[in-house]
């Protein structure tokens, strides 16, 4: 399976938050089956998607991730009974917030990949990598970080007014 390797100008950084029982095992299966996929993804293992705090997703984007993948067991298959349901509900709400903040939701993907779905893992990772590559780098947080080199002085009239009122 020696496919032609094309060089790209931009290699996105993808961070995957996965649960250890389903998706991590699915990614292991992709390995044992010697499937090939882009090398852009870095996997962080959690016991359960229920453990994944939305703050981690924000943190990942802040740290320069161009795409984030969250993946766990299929609904009903959670090793911890219902962790993935809590995750699903939490992320449904979190997506709205993320959109409000200004993060393009195309950069964030949720999926269910079971321990038997090595092929699906490859598909999901490859698709997300391609999509994010076409979108280009995520610059919003970097720009924000530059803007926020804040001196600590209160320099806008509104802030001054608020400060004096205290």
């Amino acid at each position: 399976m020696h496919s032609e390797k094309t060089k790209h100008d931009f290699e996105p950084k993808i961070i995957a938050f996965v649960c250890t029982w389903c998706t991590y095992a699915g990614a292991d299966l992709a390995g044992t089956s010697r499937m090939q996929y882009p090398a852009n993804v870095r996997v962080l293992k959690f016991p359960c998607t229920g453990r994944i705090d939305p703050v981690f997703i924000l943190k990942a984007f802040q740290q320069g991730a161009d795409g984030v993948l969250v993946s766990g067991c299929h609904p009903g298959d959670c090793h911890y009974i219902a962790g993935n349901f809590h995750a699903r509900r939490r992320f449904a709400a979190f997506r709205k917030l993320l959109e409000f903040v200004g993060v393009d939701l195309e950069r964030l993907q949720f999926s269910w990949v079971s321990a038997a779905e090595g092929g699906k893992w490859v598909e999901v990772v490859t698709e997300l990598t391609e999509k994010v590559r076409n979108m280009g780098p995520m610059t919003e947080f970097k720009e924000l970080a530059l803007e926020e080199q804040w001196s600590g002085t209160i320099d806008t009239p509104e802030l001054k007014e608020a400060y004096n009122a205290i």
Binding site: F46, P47, G50, R51, D53, H79, Y80, G83, H86, A87
Partner: peptide
């Protein structure tokens, strides 16, 4: 405790911690 950590992600005051994660 099963060790899933859902409580930690839920806790608003970050007062519960899953050892190891």
């Amino acid at each position: 405790c099963g060790g899933c950590g859902t409580c930690q992600a839920t806790c608003p005051s970050k007062s519960v911690e899953l050892d190891g994660y």
